[in-house]
Amino acid sequence: MRTARSGDNMLLLILSLVGGLIAGYFLKDKKIEISRPMQITLVVLIFSLGYDMGSKLDFAELANVGAISVIFAVITLLLSYQMARILRWFI
């Protein structure tokens, strides 16, 4: 997979988001169905991610991904929950 580490690729992604925001501003009075193209784009991206995982990672690495992902999910979820309780004392 090509990386986006080069400045050109990063600029492309930022310009895409900004371009979408500008286009959305001018299109906001029109009734345009946006969810379908978004879902199709997501499916293509997720399939590509899966293909990339399957072609580059072996079974042991995939198992490692699962274990690490559980750690990330649990810690980020619990910390967000606790931060919300703590911040209520101050704000």
């Binding site: 997979m1 090509r2 979408g20 286009a23 991610l49 293909y51």
Partner: peptide
């Protein structure tokens, strides 16, 4: 190991464009 063309950068750029539209609409 079937060779398959990937256009992740281009599709990702398209997704961000659509997200931008969605946020503003």
């Amino acid at each position: 190991e079937i060779d398959f063309p990937l256009y992740i950068q281009e599709v990702l750029a398209l997704l961000l464009f659509i997200i931008g539209i969605d946020l503003m609409m």
